[in-house]
Design a protein around this nucleic acid. Structure first.
Lengths: 230, 230
DNA sequence: AGTGAGATACTACCATGGCATAAGCCGTGG
DNA sequence: CCACGGCTTATGCCATGGTAGTATCTCACT
């Protein structure tokens, strides 16, 4: 583990610690602060975060369900290696879910959904032009979340999130440049238009096309740097 | 809580207790041993099962992620009420996932998948003719699981399982009769044929039709006994 | 009688200690 | 030199104690 891996991450004692630890560890795994195959010790994480082992353990269990960590009973816990097959499966499942949700969204879009998505695309355009990936990525996430939750399907987003982790970790390897962010925003706009005009077929197609784009990035990376894959 | 709700369920100390408690509680919730809105106390469950509160707590966290229980911090935990909107969302998500998996299965079915599914349909025919729902339901479950896992998508089945709980609880209200079991088996056979003949469109359509059948049962029940729904 | 404040009895949450088990080391015997 | 067996050390797993927070109930006061 890195010397000060948890530096700068403070926990709010007024909120459930377990959930905070989960979110923190997940971000650190996806952000590659914790490298694949790196050992994660309950005890060491606890002292490093200044909490007890119980919430750390709870967080690791949740991460194990998302296969972001592998728990070997009585032996240890490691950050799971990036398995190409798993990433491909995650991509497949995400596409199935998001395509269905996009279709549903286009069937009966609420006015607030239209408004929220429209605003998000504006924000994305600005962030993309500013060329700041760290500003853009949360907006990308918000776009997809908004479609699910704004269509009355909060659980859909949670499922998507649980499979997305594996992909995000790969995607993080290449932070998008300005051109790429503008391309993504254009695809978002296409999805938005299909929803706004209540065209389910077009919405589903646009969403599938958009997600395929991400897959393309992943495949390039896998070819570039096979070292970190298992 | 019922007086001897845990009677007859023994835990194997040689296996991880937390996972066993999770499975046990899930079965009891789906089987309506624990009724919707019933209070579940960490402490009481622990003493009743003869284990400590820690693994019980871990199990409840996992169940909360599937929305089978609602945890109110510092207040208590209850078996979640059956919310029609949630059941509908679960149905929607399950259909999206299973339809995609069935399609994929039909594209390149392995010989072992064909063999396993064929055998399962035979077993289902026998169980249906014997008219024993308690024998049939595990076979139904195995059929759907086999399609996912036999197509190299183990995670798909886990996702499906995590949304299926809400539906199973409703479905449990009406154990199927012989005619119904035969109908389900027929639909399974139709899905199987489509996979065997490598006809993706037909496989997806057959799966969607099959799952819609379940939805029909649920809607009838919701109309029959609105009392237990929230 | 109705209302509000305080005591009380619960809850889930977190901390911590002891445990069994599995891997690695290290000396011993072949 | 190699292989095997006991020992050390680490891990995750479970048990249990203490704490903060919430709802309810009681009783004084209006």
């Amino acid at each position: 583990m890195l010397p000060n891996a948890a530096a700068g991450y403070e926990l709010d004692p007024k909120q459930p610690i377990g959930a905070q630890v989960y979110g923190l560890l997940k971000r650190m795994i996806i952000g590659l602060t914790f490298k694949p195959n790196e050992a994660l010790s309950e005890k060491e994480l606890a002292v490093r975060l200044g909490v007890s082992r119980t919430p750390v353990r709870e967080a690791l269990i949740r991460l194990a369900e998302e296969t972001l960590v592998d728990v070997f009973p009585q032996r240890g816990t490691i950050v799971s290696p990036i398995r190409v097959a798993e990433v491909m499966e995650a991509q497949f499942l995400r596409e199935a879910l998001e395509a269905a949700v996009a279709r549903r969204a286009a069937e009966q879009p609420s006015t607030t959904l239209i408004r929220d998505l429209s605003r998000l695309i504006d924000d994305q355009t600005h962030a993309a032009n500013a060329g700041l990936p760290e500003d853009y990525m949360p907006l990308d996430e918000a776009f997809h979340r908004t479609i699910s939750e704004g269509t009355g399907m909060p659980r859909a987003w949670r499922l998507i999130q649980s499979v997305k982790g594996q992909m995000d970790r790969v995607r993080f390897l290449s932070l998008p440049n300005k051109a790429h962010m503008l391309l993504l925003t254009e695809q978002h706009a296409e999805i938005f238009k299909a929803i706004e005009t209540q065209d389910p077929d077009r919405a589903e197609a646009a969403m599938r096309h958009h997600l395929k784009e991400v897959l393309k990035t992943i495949q390039e990376l896998a070819a570039e740097m096979p070292a970190i894959f298992a």
